[in-house]
């Protein structure tokens, strides 16, 4: 089967972002960028399915500026076969991204599409579910285990309070949760090889997709800061404060 994996270029998860003084957004100038951690897990899962002989080809796609080629090359170094960049300099919302991915799905005809459950910048947790709806596919979100069984996919999902397993008809959409796998590091020879793997660039216009949005960001501000309290000297003092000062126990 062919697997399509979507990846997003985001601020590296170790970076503490700062809000711009004019409230127009967060300051991304000279900030380290990386592949969204959940997308790394998605790439890893697809590559493992290929190594098991279940997947025949892994195609990785990103939607973003030309700089996102860097993350696509990373995915190629991790084991994806070829890459597609849908190049757009606009800040696209999940619905627009899902529509663009739907156009790529129509073209590539994958049996399985794997995405991260959310991007750590906009924290929307929407794109995979929206893509599933647009394609009319079943969805296995927040996956901690994925197993292909004939023309069916068994997905174990992280839900509030435990785990749920669903059986999905293929083609299907999977979004990854943290425990699905531990992504590998790209080796130097694979990084060199990735430079020669094919990477196509297309535009939203060429895919015939309108990326108009009904959501406008009015402002972005820093959250209310929480100030440090006091240090207590003993457990007895802590219990006393919680009882008599904070009155929470």
């Amino acid at each position: 089967m062919k697997i399509l994996v979507a990846v997003k270029r985001v601020v590296d998860y170790n970076v503490k972002v700062r809000v711009k003084a004019d409230g127009s957004g967060v300051d991304l100038a000279n900030v380290k960028m990386a592949m969204n951690p959940f997308c790394e897990i998605a790439v890893e899962e697809a590559v493992r399915l290929k190594e098991k002989g279940i997947a025949s080809e892994v195609v990785v796609v990103s939607i973003g500026s030309s700089a996102a080629q860097e993350q696509l090359r990373t995915a190629l170094a991790l084991g994806a076969d070829r890459a597609v960049l849908v190049e757009s300099n606009d800040e696209l919302g999940p619905l627009a991204v899902a529509k663009l991915l739907k156009a790529v799905v129509d073209k590539e005809q994958p049996q399985l599409v794997i995405l991260g459950k959310q991007a750590i910048d906009s924290d929307n947790n929407q794109t995979g579910q929206m893509l599933a709806a647009l394609c009319g596919f079943a969805q296995g979100t927040f996956a901690s285990r994925v197993e292909v069984a004939g023309d069916q996919l068994n997905v174990t999902r992280e839900i509030d309070g435990g785990l749920q397993t669903v059986a999905l008809k293929l083609p299907a959409i999977v979004t990854t949760d943290l425990r699905l796998n531990e992504p590998r590091y790209a080796s130097l020879p694979n990084i060199m090889k990735a430079k020669k793997k094919p990477l196509d660039v297309v535009t939203p216009d060429a895919l015939g997709v309108s990326t108009a949005s009904t959501v406008k960001v009015l402002k972005v501000e820093a959250p209310a800061a929480r100030s440090a309290g006091i240090k207590v000297g003993s457990v007895a003092e802590l219990v006393e404060k919680l009882k008599n000062e904070a009155k929470v126990i």
């Binding site: 999940p94 619905l95 899902a98 929307n124 579910q129 709806a133 009904t214």
Partner: peptide, 23 residues
């Protein structure tokens, strides 16, 4: 915005062809 709400709601939004606002 429980795992159930997060699972189903974007699917609803896409079927209605509207953007969703999360959390």
């Amino acid at each position: 915005a429980t795992t159930n709400g997060k699972n189903v709601l974007p699917r609803v939004a896409a079927l209605l062809d509207v953007d969703q606002i999360s959390e």
